[in-house]
Each structure stands twice: as C-alpha cells, then as structure tokens.
Write a protein that binds this DNA or RNA. Sequence first.
RNA 1: GGAGUGGUAGUUAAGACGGUUAUAACGCCGGCCUGUCACGCCGGAGGCCGAGGGUUCAAGUCCCUUCCACUCCGCCA
Length: 610
Amino acid sequence: MNEISSSEKDLQQEHQQYIVPLGGWRRTHDCGQLNASDNGAEVCLMGWVQFRRDHGGLIFIDLRDRAGLTQTVFSPEVAPSAHESAHILRSEYVLAVKGRVRRRPEGMANPGMPTGEIEVVVLEWKLLNTSKTPPFMVEDRIDAAENLRLQYRYLDLRRPRMASNIITRHKLAQCTRNYMDENGFLEVETPFLTRSTPEGARDFLVPSRLNPGEFYALPQSPQLFKQLLMVSGLDRYFQIARCFRDEDLRADRQPEFTQIDVEMSFADEELVMEMAEGLIARIFKDVMRKDVALPFPRMPYEQAMAEYGVDKPDTRFGLKLCDVTEIVRGSEFKLFASAEMVKAFKVPGGESISRKDIDGYTEFVKIYGAQGLAWIKIRPEEWQSPIAKFLSEQERQGLAKALDLQAGDLVFFQAGAPDMVNAALGNLRVRLGQDLGLVNEGDYNFLWVTDFPLFEYDKDENRDVACHHPFTAARPEDMPKLQSDPASVKARAYDMVLNGTELGGGSIRNHSADAQRAMFAALGFKPEEAEAQFGFLMQALELGAPPHGGIAFGLDRMAMLLTGSNSIRDVIAFPKTQKATCLLTDAPAEVSPKQLRELGLRLREKEKDQ
RNA sequence: GGAGUGGUAGUUAAGACGGUUAUAACGCCGGCCUGUCACGCCGGAGGCCGAGGGUUCAAGUCCCUUCCACUCCGCCA
C-alpha cells in the first residue's frame, strides 16, 4: 500500500511543477454552451478533466464545469507542444485551454451531448492545479455511499446532477424574490439569536457570554418577528429564512432548513391564498416551464382525513377510504364489532394481488401501530378472506353497497383507534398507489386543505395544543366556543399540498390582543405566564396592529420536488447526517475549557474518567 | 426512545454451507494505440472483510457488544 500511494503521490507531486498561474487568461465560454454556430471561434475554457482518452496520437479530454462538458482535442499535428505535455493530465486536474471550435468530422458527432456537434482543438493550455485520485468518480452514474459523498461534499457537488440541483434551487429562490418584489413585498432579515418559546419543536440553544446562565434560541421560524413587522406598517414582508429545529431527522427533514416566509397586512385567507398560488404558478412556469391551473381546488380537513386518512392527500389516484364502522358494528368478527372506528378501501381489480404481497402490506401497516390487516377478495362466486365467515349477509350487503364492490376487487380493512386506522390505511393507500403504478408521474395535483381544527389534544401533556401555532386566529363565529367546546373550533388556517406533500401552510393571525389572550387561555396558559412569554406581542397588538396573515413554504422540499430528488440532502449544499453531524467538518465538536468558562457552563462529569 | 437495511481492494458489489492463496467490474500504475466519447488492447499493484470480544483445530461466514450511514415509527406548533 505504501508503494502505490507513494508512487501516486510522487506522480501527482511531480506534475505539480507544471502548475502555472492564470496569467490574465479569462474564460470566453463555459463548458456547456458551444455549438455548431460557434464553428471557427477562438475560445478559452476552464474546468476539470472528466475523461481522458489518450490514443497515443490524439488525446481527447472532456472538460467539465458546472454548465456541462466540452470535448477538447490535443493533436500532435495542430499543436505539437500542447499535445506533448498533455500526457500528464489525470482525472480532476484543473486546466485552462485556448483553442479553436470546430465541427466534429462527419459521423463523429455525439448526439448524447449538448456540445456534441463540436470540439475545441487545443492550441495552448495551462495546468491550473493537480488532483489526487478522487475517492469516488465525479459522475452521475456512480452510486457512492452517502457517508463518502458527505465527507467529500465538494466532490459530490461537482457531479452534474448535484450541480443541477443547486442551480435549480437558486432559480427557485431567485424567482421567488422576483415575484415577491413585483408584488410589493419587502425582504427583511429577522434575528437568528432570539428567545426560546414554550410551544412547538425543541429549540437549539445558544449560551450568552454577557448574560451568564441565559440562552438565546435559534428561530424555529420568524413567526413573531414577521407579525411585528406587520404592526410596524411594513405591510408586506417576505424572507428566504433559515429555520432551526432540534428534532430527529428524516429523508425530508434537516435540523436547519429554509422557508419562504411571507406575511401580509390587511389580508384575509383569500388574499394570502391568491398570492401564494401566484407564486407557485410562477415558480413552476419559470423553473419547470409548466403551466399550473389556478385557482387550486380546496378540501376541508375533515374530508381529507375521512377520504385519505391524512391531512395532505395525494389526489392523483383514487383508492379513497370509506368509514364502515356502523355497517360492521356488532359483527361476529369481534375486532370489528367493538372497534371505535372501522375503515376500508377497495383496490379495483386487486384480486390478482398475491398473498405474499398482502403479507407485505400487513407488515407495512404494523409500522403505524396496526395489529394486522383484514382483507377480502371479491370473487364472482364467493368472498375469499380469512374473515369472510364472520360476516353476515346483511354486513356483506352493507359493505358491497358502501364500497360499490365488483367481482375482482380487493378490500383492505383497519379497525381500532381513529388515529391509527387513518395512519395505517392512509399510508397503505399511498403505498398501493405507487406499487400499482396508479400515479401518473407528469401530474401535479395542487390542493388547499382548509378548515383545520384550531386545537388538537396532546395525550402526553393532557391538554389542547395549537394545531397550527398559537397565533392562528379562530373563525370569528367559533370564538365563543374557545373555552366551552374547543374541539369544534376551526382555525383560519390553510395548507398547500402537492401530490401528497405539504408544500406550505399558513393562517390569518390574531390581530386583537383580546383574541390572542383568549387563545393563550384556551391553551392553558395562566395570564401571567402568557404575559411573561408573549407580553411583547400582546403589547404590539394593542398599539395598532392591522389584520394580517401569511404563509410559509418549505423551500428545500419544493427544491426536492422540482429536481425529483428522494432526499432533502440532495438539494442542500452541506447537509447533516441522520445524527445531525457534519461529516465534512466533523461538527458538532467539543470546545475548550476556556470557552466553557467564559460561557459560565460546566459539563456533567463523564463517568469514564477512570 | 423504538423497528429495519447496510458496512468486504480507492469505488460499487459477489462470497454467508465455518475449511487452500477472499472474487469481479470500474478506478489506479506501466506499456501500445490518430477519431474516441463509460475509447480499445496487454501487463501490474492494491485487503486487519467497520471496531472490540467470544465459540472453534479453524471465523469474512456463528454468537455477544459497539461504532458509522441510510429508511421508518415516535417526535417535528
């Protein structure tokens, strides 16, 4: 091993003697833009060596930059000295070439390459830097392990796919800025160092050196500040805002993420939604060149939960859920008889789904707390099912009618607590939609989910918590029920959903201090607690707050959708691992005793100190 | 906090039934090659099988512990 690495090191080091300064050279083009119309032009390109094809005589180097690839040719006939020295070139060496664009000879064009009609005949070139052999090849088709990619993220980002993701993300942000600016929104920065608030996700805390024992929190969102900006009379605000939440990660969740954060004064739901739809349509037009039909359809939360089992329905396919609780109440099948809720959905023609697949789906729903998965195959002559023998004729007729059953259908059932039933069937429905190819990949089904409840019950805390956040206004007609019947109170909130993914959500806020106080009371805050935590907000609301509301979009998730990525990490330049570490910089890391002392912090004694 | 998948040359994977010297492809190094474009041909180097412990005459393979990455549940107003 020493031999190879030392000889490789020697080779690369030996080549370093050929490195020269730019010496005033400037690029005339990038590596993705030349075509047949540039034939004959003298150009200067700079980039990285993608492939070297050394024919002994001719040498072909594909030069790469973020824009693409251009084939360069080193020819002993055209430029003998340039050709002679080109033998040292290796993958990922950085070079500058000056040369002449020419059409490739007849039959030599590469139609698979945007620049495939031409090549650049090198007249003169400079080695700008060498490179060790990279730990993985800089190509889209290389499937390197994610930890390697993260450790060498700068190499990963050289891959065309990743570079294109970052470019798309930039376009998304830029297009947002243009649209917001055209519509009178001001981009305002809000603090990263702010105060911890009790509701919501876990905060990242920052110790204060000047105030020992006290902590800032990084913002989970700029919510309070943007409301204060409305009280300021700045009227329309937006920010492409970094947000922080110290919760566990997922494929679509990072501890720091970016929101397109928007707030508008003198606005009601309709105005905010109209503006938001305009933004999304603009983004799809500019970034995807796709027209989006406006306005988006709307669906009340209750309908979403009833028919799809989730609050972000994917409406690209059917398989809607059906509540059959009453039909099977008192059934001989004990699991159904006494269940709080029984729901079902049918898979048309699903009779051909194998027992093995059904077993797989049974395992799948157990993730969501289901004990099992009941099913029935509707055959012309009989109902084939482990539970068929328990079903009375009346129950069968009831089910057949409610689900409109035909021969060849397959029905899945789930019985139990509503949360579990909806989660299990709602997610199974999505899974089947994928497995059965019911999703047309070109479809973009936008949807507003509206009429959310204002509260949801938190079992652990044994109290109501805000469904959206505690500054969301209740529907005016529900205000009297805040104390008496909180479960029935609807929020002036709305979520934008695309193909089963929540793109964003928002609400109209309480702009009257009294309404906000009533909200805090309903959430179980004592007046003095509310005052201590949010006194500054209530005071602001008492000093001429206009009616206002807003919305926030997940920019990372949107970038994911626009680029067809499976993970949010693929649209973030430097993401964290699932344990929230950075493999590139090795953050987080221990700090010196001096730093801790200055912050007035002492770490718990480690037990391994022996 | 919990469930699952994976970790073997630089990379991606095969080997899993315990038994000679651990395979392959790509990459890397050397040689040949004037129309390639994932160039081609010939030759070569490269391994503590994630780490630690155990069982055994013998462990990449079996057992235990642990670390790392990923997916999911909980959590994420």
